[in-house]
Write a protein that binds this DNA or RNA. Structure first.
Lengths: 211, 211
DNA sequence: CGGGACATGTAACGCGTTACATGATTAA
DNA sequence: TTAATCATGTAACGCGTTACATGTCCCG
């Protein structure tokens, strides 16, 4: 087991398998889209890729569930080695993460284009984040964990319906909601500023004469 | 000019060139490290790569500044075409950005390892974000724009020492500070929760008998 | 009868990261 | 003398993204 064999997404999948028990690639994708949405995104193509890599490393085991008239479900479990690797990763503290927000770039360079333009972008972002906040408030993170969880949980796992009481999940939900609220508040303030500039297009503080 | 010829970092560089006028790759790197730190990071290797790509597209022009006993500075300018491309990008509103925070993953999976471990990670993050906040409060974003800006601004550009009054830069600084404060507050609350769990290791709400 | 959910894949492409490389100047 | 600043590169590697692919079931 080399360190370069694994990356955050590897451990993300591994963690899901340990915490919410045997899962198919499709299940994992749903968990990324809902439960992990505030911290990590993943395309299904990458999840399937990663699962095969982890199988080769003996970090997960696959069991085929046959189905009629649908592709077979391939259900994965974390092995002992996988769990050891996960614990090793958990023991290393990560560096500060990199925010990569295109909107912030467009705000910084807002003066280069028109203010109408910038205002439009801000409104679009407000709409999207407002929807996210609503989703989080409606407990979207728990959607894939509800009673309706795919193949109906076969073995009684310790989290079944009571998952909403997992304190760590609650912590993440708190973060997601607090973050979206803060982000939205900033967006509204930025929009207000831009709209004021639109009303008084040129505010000549310094008696600007021709250059 | 195809859409696939450019990415956020391309426009980040382009925007810097338009806003803070002729710059070398080294200058651009400093601007990414300080001014753009809250929204986009970039390695110098990628900046040099991108500059050559943009030169091939005729989005930037290069002028060599000869120096004794140091490598020549290659100073770049945005062309008309480059500015047009930048404006076109500014007019498209971006989707929601993806947070990719390894720490949040480790918090979610915190119960898999020891609480000591998780507390340690949280404290490390607190330290790092506390430093960031301090830097932002000390106007770190402006560092490369101060009077000391490299080759001393040759042509009197409209931003020279007064950059601290650019309203868009102020907006970004506000965002950075608000974000760090929010993040830190959450980290402290998370740590408090974990420390309480350490004191009362097993809180048997449900008279847990053997499975 | 079209669209969504279910279910799993392959392929292309490059941004972003990390490491390696060079070499002078200046300050602690 | 050790380290930081100045200054610009090359190379390897793969995660993350986007697009393409296939086929059934079920709901309105």
């Amino acid at each position: 087991m080399k360190a370069s064999d694994a990356y955050p997404i590897t451990y993300g999948i591994l963690g899901l398998l340990v915490k919410w028990g045997p899962l198919s690639g499709y299940d994992i994708k749903r968990l990324f889209d809902y439960t992990l949405a505030p911290m990590w995104g993943a395309a299904h193509s990458q999840i399937y890729k990663e699962l095969r890599r982890m199988e080769a490393l003996d970090w997960v085991e696959m069991e085929r569930e046959e189905q009629e008239s649908r592709p077979d479900r391939k259900v994965y479990c974390a092995t002992e080695q996988g769990q050891a690797a996960l614990r090793a990763w958990l023991s290393r503290s990560p560096g500060v993460f990199q925010l990569r927000d295109e909107l912030l770039l467009k705000v910084l360079f807002g003066s280069i284009a028109s203010l109408d333009n910038l205002a439009h972008n801000l409104r679009a972002s407000i709409g999207m984040h407002e929807m996210r906040l609503l989703a989080y408030r409606q407990n979207a993170l728990l959607l894939p964990l509800q009673a309706s969880f795919p193949h109906g949980n076969k073995r009684p796992n310790p989290y079944e319906a009571g998952s909403r009481e997992d304190p760590y999940l609650n912590l993440i939900a708190d973060f997601a909601i607090t973050f979206e609220k803060m982000y939205l508040q900033w967006l509204y303030e930025a929009l207000k500023m831009v709209e004021q500039s639109q009303e008084q297009p040129i505010e000549n503080k310094s008696e600007a004469s021709e250059s």
